[in-house]
Simulated assay, not measured.
Amino acid sequence: MPDAPARDVLAVDGLVRRFGKLTAVDGVSFHVAPGETYGLLGPNGAGKTTTISMIAGLIRADAGTITVAGEPVGPQHVAVRRRIGLVPQDLAIYPELTARENLRFFGRLQGLGGHDLARRVADVLQLVGLDSRADGATKEFSGGMKRRLNIGIGLLHRPELLILDEPTVGVDPQSRNAILESVEALSVEGMAVLYTTHYMEEAERLCDRIAIVDSGRIQAEGTRDDLIRMLGGVDQVRLAGDGDLEAAAAALRELPAVERAEAGADHAVVLAVRDAPSAVASLVTGATEAGLALHDVEITRPNLEAVFLHLTGKALRD
């Protein structure tokens, strides 16, 4: 008998939140499975933080439902919060305490104690890469180290759902990479992660599925490849060389993978190609046989920036 499918850790249905005449979240629905990292990708003001504040039970929803591990979530439902770890944008640590002391303090607030607390503190310090600095005062930490400690605090009580709200804002590239490596390790442990960001590369690197959020609504949802296919999954290829560009373009149009081929003004043929990496050999052969002496091949693949622009009519950081 086949195993029953795993129940979603988080299920959000028809979520709405208004502030006066402003509808900050407008009918948002999605789900997150065990071991999945789900991204909310959108600019500041898109409604991401309001959404996760409702999911964490900090503010009420005007409409819609939220469940975590099958239990309803809201300000009046206190017990379910033990299943949730929230890592806010603002740091929630005590600078005069060491990393270990911070973790012990917050662990006690989460109901941990004794050997279990000591073991969890040690495990979390190792996971976020702070075990060598465990007994240093956090006021001496870099911004990235403080951010990693913030994540560790959210992990202490072994939540089934970890919510990370823009965890890399304002940190240097090296610290940012360390934070992303820590997040990548979480889904391996089977934890469901809800990750908000306005950085395309973070969403592409970390998230199994991504929701593009703008103006309080989910504009599109899916894996990176699902979203790219919304643009037709067509790559751009630029073949630069010397020779009869018009003849080369005409010959290349006959190839099955080529949707368009035009002679450019800069000694190049520009093509729209389905799955360019697998077709590039035939493109080079076709161009060469048509008399083009190639000296450069450039492939540009669609990315989430292009998808976001297509869906919203604006760049992500507008």
Rank of each mutant, 00 (worst) to 15 (best):
P167N: 10
L130R: 11
S182T: 15
M200T: 01
L180H: 07
E184I: 03
D135L: 10
T138V: 15
L125W: 04
S187E: 00
D131C: 12
A118I: 00
A192P: 01
D165A: 12
A185C: 03
D131G: 11
L117Q: 00
L180N: 10
G190C: 03
K146H: 14
L194E: 01
G136N: 13
A122F: 05
T197W: 09
R133K: 14
L180P: 02
N177Q: 12
A122D: 14
P167S: 12
M200N: 02
H198C: 07
L156H: 03
H198R: 05
T197R: 08
D116F: 01
A178R: 11
S175E: 09
G114D: 00
Q174I: 15
R119D: 10
M200G: 04
V121T: 04
S132G: 13
D135G: 12
R176E: 07
E189N: 02
L125Q: 04
L117P: 00
R120P: 00
H198M: 07
V193W: 03
V188D: 05
G190P: 01
L127R: 13
A185D: 02
E140Y: 13
A118P: 00
H198Y: 06
V171R: 10
D116G: 00
G129Q: 08
S175Q: 07
K146A: 15
A134M: 12
V128W: 07
A185R: 14
R133S: 14
